[in-house]
Design a binder for these strands. Structure first.
Length: 154
DNA sequence: GCCAACGTTGGC
DNA sequence: GCCAACGTTGGC
């Protein structure tokens, strides 16, 4: 089956694309929203990920990652000392999951949210309608459009 | 730091 | 099962 494409948000102050480049791969923990979790459980190895910087100035797409491990329990949910702790999640009955992603590239041009809004081919992106959803599917056409913009020379 | 949007919780 | 209260996300 063809690889799907996703957009995943992270605050660059906490974990940005530069940190992923350094670490090469990392688990994507801390997702505490059911819809976002369900999307992560649909991910397959090799799926493309747009790495989005949220709560940044400006917010926008910073580059690309790739899914390298499918969903498994998010152990931070079991850890009382973690900010992501959730007492309703246990090793026997995990409520929250994470995937692993590997670094692919940092775009030559960071793509700010307000610029993406202006692109007609991206008008239907979930990003603009469901601003709080931190993991979301992206169509192949949207993915390709964003890659082209991110790699373009001035 | 503010606040709108919206997901979640819990009383009924 | 409804919905008000509450908490969080994330743009600005």
């Amino acid at each position: 089956m063809a690889a799907r494409a996703w957009l995943m948000k992270s605050e660059p102050d906490v974990f940005g694309i530069a940190a992923l480049r350094r670490k090469r791969r990392e688990h994507w923990d801390g997702v505490r929203n059911f819809q976002a979790r369900n999307f992560m459980r649909e991910m397959a190895i090799g799926d493309d990920v747009l790495f989005y910087h949220s709560n940044a100035r400006p917010p926008g797409v910073a580059g690309l990652a790739r899914v390298c491990k499918t969903a498994y329990p998010d152990t931070t949910s079991f850890d009382p000392s973690s900010p992501y702790h959730d007492p309703r999640s246990t090793p026997d009955q995990p409520r929250w999951f994470m995937v692993d992603v590997e670094f692919v590239e940092e775009f030559a041009r960071f793509l700010p949210l307000d610029g993406l809004r202006e692109v007609p081919a991206l008008a239907d992106m979930i990003l603009f309608r469901r601003s709080r959803l931190s993991v979301q599917p992206v169509s192949r056409a949207e993915f390709q459009t964003i890659c082209r913009l991110g790699r373009a020379r001035r």
